[in-house]
């Protein structure tokens, strides 16, 4: 399951996409929206995505994880549009034969998502707004 959605994400549905009888671990990571950034109060935030590219990029990350950690299955769902503070903007579920690979693959997947899946976030504050920049992003300055 690799999706960009505009509704709240149900983590149980994402888990169901990776769970199977051969798995010894199912690990769910939820990235949730915060109410502040560097001391400024966030009054609202919204995500947008280049969905036609974001979905294949998520799939490619899952393929890389499966190649690196045998037996790992991965599902990723990112929400776009307005996301109320405290709700999940992204859910990543990993199943693996053993817990070690599940933790490693989950960390790899969220780091890779922040680096290359085309999704953007605009936060609104009481006195302005800003597009957030992931530290993982490595663009060129042409």
């Amino acid at each position: 399951m690799f999706e960009i959605v505009s509704e709240p994400i149900d983590p149980r549905q994402v888990e169901a996409a990776v769970a199977h009888d051969g798995a010894g671990a199912v690990l769910t990571f939820a990235g949730t929206t915060r109410d502040s950034f560097e001391g400024r109060r966030v009054v609202g935030l919204a995500y947008e995505a280049f969905a036609e590219m974001a979905v294949p990029e998520m799939r490619a990350i899952a393929d890389q994880a499966a190649a690196r950690w045998p037996g790992v299955r991965l599902a990723m769902v990112h929400r776009i549009g307005e996301v109320p503070v405290g709700e999940a903007s992204v859910v990543i579920c990993v199943s693996a034969p053993h817990r070690g690979a599940a933790y490693d693959a989950s960390r790899f997947a969220i780091d890779a998502l922040k680096e290359r899946v085309p999704v953007w976030k605009k936060e609104r504050y009481e006195d302005g707004a800003a597009w957030k920049e992931n530290a993982e992003f490595a663009g060129e300055e042409p």
Binding site: Y47, A54, V119, W120, W131
Partner: peptide, 9 residues
């Protein structure tokens, strides 16, 4: 597409 700094996650 020129992909500006990402903010997903």
């Amino acid at each position: 597409v020129f992909v500006p700094p990402l903010g997903g996650g």
